Amino acid sequence: MTFRSPRAAFAAALLSAAALGVAALPAHAQSPAPATPPAAAAPAPGATDADPVLARVNGIEIKKSDLTIAEDELGGSLPPQLQGPARQEYVLGFLIDLTALAQSAEADKLDQAPEFAQQLAFAKKRLLMQAALSKATKAAVSDAELKKTYDEALKQQKPEEEVRARHILFRVEDPKDEKASAAAEAKAKDVEAKLKKGEDFAKLASALTEDPSGKENGGDLGYFTKDQMVPEFADKAFAMKPGEVSEPVKTQFGWHVIKLEDKRQKPLPSFDDVKPQIEQFLAQKAQAEAVQKVRDAAKVEKTTAAPSPADLLPKTDAPAAPAQAPKP
């Protein structure tokens, strides 16, 4: 079951654009953490057991809370094989390098450059935007709202039939190859005859089918809806009764012999199955609405220097003026 919002793409695009605006920090993978961890320091004044000081760089403290912030910021860029204490040590090494480089940059007065002030202002706005979107998300994604959205989605789901079937396939690589098609049809008819004599379908499928995925499970396709199979196969399977075996059926893949195992109404997903999707849907919806609300309330004035919609159109060269006829 999929939950969609007309504004979901807008919210996703906004968040992606915000992410692209972040200046990349040096990859810590190129500056591994020192093999010997820094010596344990005495607890700093005011430090608590919940947020201990992990290291000091020229007197500047790095706390456990700093580690959490850095880990969230780095996100998927961290090597996936690093988990637990190794991951924390890796991030701490990154923070040590980051702090030392920041101190060096301040010593060189790089923070006094005009462009630095612009970048700092942009970073502040980006963080404030993230805080606002996070606030909107927390308010929207409650247990009650999750359950309400799930119940509303279930009401919109129409009952859908699905079947479980097995098949034995004899492939025809080129549908236009009549000789190969006739040979595959003959094999399918031979199987049909064996089944009429009482041979086991699953055993024949494991021995004869040319569908690689069916050899280990006796040709079992599991449950599927009508739109999940090619029309010729689906029409035949859904017209059968459980226990029935079809005559050879031709599709674009070759010739099939089908056995219908079961028919049922497709079960609806449980709340736990789709809870992550609902959370994502509600978060995107809340964020898009929050953005639209503040945008509608804001007084926006674009100057003549701003790009206009016409600037987005591809440029075309004007047709050349016709050559002037020579005077007699």
Score class of each variant (00 low, 15 high):
18 A>K: 11
288 A>K: 00
74 L>D: 04
287 Q>E: 14
209 T>Q: 01
282 L>P: 04
322 P>L: 05
241 K>H: 08
11 A>H: 06
306 A>I: 02
97 D>Q: 12
283 A>V: 09
90 Y>W: 15
205 A>F: 03
275 K>T: 13
126 R>W: 04
18 A>V: 14
295 R>A: 15
206 S>M: 10
103 Q>F: 04
76 G>H: 12
249 V>P: 01
1 M>G: 12
16 S>R: 07
41 A>Y: 00
63 K>C: 06
288 A>W: 01
152 E>G: 07
311 D>R: 04
328 P>T: 09
69 I>H: 09
185 E>T: 11
267 P>Y: 03
291 V>C: 09
31 S>V: 11
120 L>D: 14
274 V>F: 03
183 A>N: 10
239 A>H: 03
233 F>S: 02
275 K>R: 15
72 D>F: 07
177 D>C: 05
208 L>H: 02
48 T>M: 03
53 V>R: 10
163 V>F: 05
235 D>M: 02
92 L>D: 00
69 I>E: 14
91 V>C: 03
235 D>L: 01
7 R>S: 15
200 D>V: 12
303 T>D: 12
54 L>S: 01
62 I>A: 04
64 K>A: 09
257 V>R: 04
38 P>W: 02
13 A>T: 12
185 E>W: 06
212 P>W: 03
23 A>K: 00
244 E>R: 07
111 D>E: 11
55 A>G: 01
84 G>L: 01
194 K>P: 02
269 P>I: 07
75 G>F: 07
187 K>N: 14
107 A>D: 14
265 Q>G: 08
45 P>I: 05
101 L>D: 12
189 K>H: 08
148 K>I: 00
84 G>R: 00
245 V>P: 04
46 G>S: 09
101 L>M: 12
315 K>M: 08
127 L>E: 15
275 K>I: 08
279 E>D: 13
249 V>C: 04
94 F>W: 11
297 A>R: 13
82 L>C: 04
229 M>C: 10
215 K>A: 06
121 A>I: 13
219 G>H: 05
312 L>D: 15
228 Q>R: 12
320 A>P: 02
31 S>N: 13
48 T>R: 11
10 F>L: 14
274 V>K: 02
279 E>Q: 14
206 S>Q: 11
274 V>T: 09
38 P>L: 10
70 A>I: 01
220 D>F: 02
56 R>C: 05
146 L>F: 05
190 D>T: 14
251 T>C: 03
162 E>M: 08
236 K>L: 05
307 P>R: 09
38 P>A: 10
291 V>A: 15
272 D>E: 15
272 D>R: 06
162 E>F: 03
319 P>E: 10
132 A>I: 05
304 T>K: 15
56 R>K: 12
270 S>I: 09
160 E>R: 13
22 V>R: 14
309 P>L: 06
114 P>W: 09
138 K>C: 06
278 I>M: 04
55 A>W: 01
2 T>N: 13
10 F>Y: 10
149 T>C: 10
291 V>L: 14
95 L>E: 03
